[in-house]
Design a binder for these strands. Sequence first.
RNA 1: GAUCCGGUAGCUCAGUCGGUAGAGCAUUUGACUUUUAAUCAAAGGGUCGUGGGUUCGAGCCCCACCCGGAUCACCA
Length: 518
Amino acid sequence: MTQQLSEQEIVRREALAAIRELGIDPYPAQAFDVSHHAADLHRDFDGTEGTFTEVSLAGRIMSRRVMGKASFAELQDSSGRMQIYVSRDDICPDENKDLYNKLFKKLLDIGDFVGVKGYMFTTKLGEKTLRVEEFTFLSKSLRPLPIVKRVTNEETGEEEIHDAFTDPELRYRRRYVDLVVNPQVRDIFITRSKVMTAMRQYFNAQGWLEVETPILQPIHGGAAARPFMTHHNTLDTDLYMRIANELYLKRLIVGGYDGVYEFGKMFRNEGMDRTHNPEFTAMEIYVAYKDYEWMMTMVEKMLEQVVTEVTGGSVVEYSGNQIDFSGPYDRLTMLESIEKYTGTDLRGKSEDEVRAFCKSQHIEVDNSMGLGKLIDEIFGEKVEANLIQPTYITDYPIEMTPLAKKHRSEDGLVERFELFVNGKEIANAYSELNDPIDQRERFEDQLKLAERGDDEAMVLDEDFLRALEYGMPPTSGLGIGIDRLVMLITGQHSIQEVLFFPQMKPEVKQGTTSADEE
RNA sequence: GAUCCGGUAGCUCAGUCGGUAGAGCAUUUGACUUUUAAUCAAAGGGUCGUGGGUUCGAGCCCCACCCGGAUCACCA
């Protein structure tokens, strides 16, 4: 495959060859010993001469200002940037000045990796700077990076960004470039990692076990969604990419663990938009001998701790709302929430009465909708968007929740809650159904839905029923959409901003014609 | 899936009424030993997303398609 090189790419390849001609390996194998990171030096060096005299840094050259025999450059490592001062006679004490005159001034490009050793000082303009005594070339960059310039406006004191690398398509397709030039993007993923670490620490401290369960499943159970299908050649059997791991985690509770949790990718063959990616991360946890009321208390404690550990406080700003994750959170049953936001109490109402209410509220309904579906529609239209502060909605209609236990006192409802924040669901939990006979009937109800054409109805999993027949303790289970939680905590409005590599259509290469599909 | 917006130099963008393709940064050459988007002088760099059409002439108008974004519908 031949590629058309731009002028700048040709120049960089010529520089690569010239570096080799100087006897310098542009891709040396040996390790470079790093003593500090840029952020450490900005924090710890107070300007006192004679401190920080043996400092070595490594990273990319991000800018360079050459003034004859002396130069300034910015070196960027994983922590940030440090200005370096390079003087010809410092790095070339002998007669041969090639290292400065040729390598540093001519052959070095923005994006190249270098290692520098020297001592810290403060320039007359007050910037902490590393004066370089030893300069080591570490890796050549053959493609120009986008040049993003940040400058502090002297009048307003605000940071202005020039020539920002903002095109979403390029940013997502070349996330590595995005991460190099946009530090705020790097920070989002650091926060994402911290969120997951803080959750793990919370669960591990309770003695619950982190587990892994199959991604390739013969039956796509545990949720209502269209799956991806694949095929195992040796077994000659079709397999599904999991849409949920719920049924496997419950099998582990049957097996005797007190608590199990899994952070896992789920795969759903459905539409994509600002809040949906075909693969996404869910955290599911199951704890024996507990119910959904206990789970609500656990979740609010856990989220308060996680948000506080990650952000330094319990309040997060999102879409102009101050969202406070400190518990306890409001708890409303679904019917109470509808009464609160519509003024109408639907308790004890018949399906026809509820349908008439929908029409009076201009909510679109059709005759295939049962009572549970109608109530869910009203909730979605009238209530959901109002739930800005973390709020538990409890006690859902039984029809839509085949894996939850029937309510201990309310007919037609199940012991389920969802946690809403900023008008969006971020967690879903049940007192888990552990009655194998009831569970079989619920699966059979789902089969009837499937026969009526519902391609998202849940599939009957005979082995899961067998596990329940051996006996499962009363258990509460919870799922949290990690991507959406991270969106909230980092203030992002697109799931693509919290996934390193969001799903994209394949890049089209020029000159190729794609065969017609279908 | 529907509607709207966008795709022009390595990057960010401008491009008037349809009449020779523009700027800043980046790149190249030169000057400069404490710069701060360094500065100064000069130069090179384009299949205007793809394919058709209208026209004497298309970045611009028309049609189709590709990619992306936003909104809506469905879903978590």
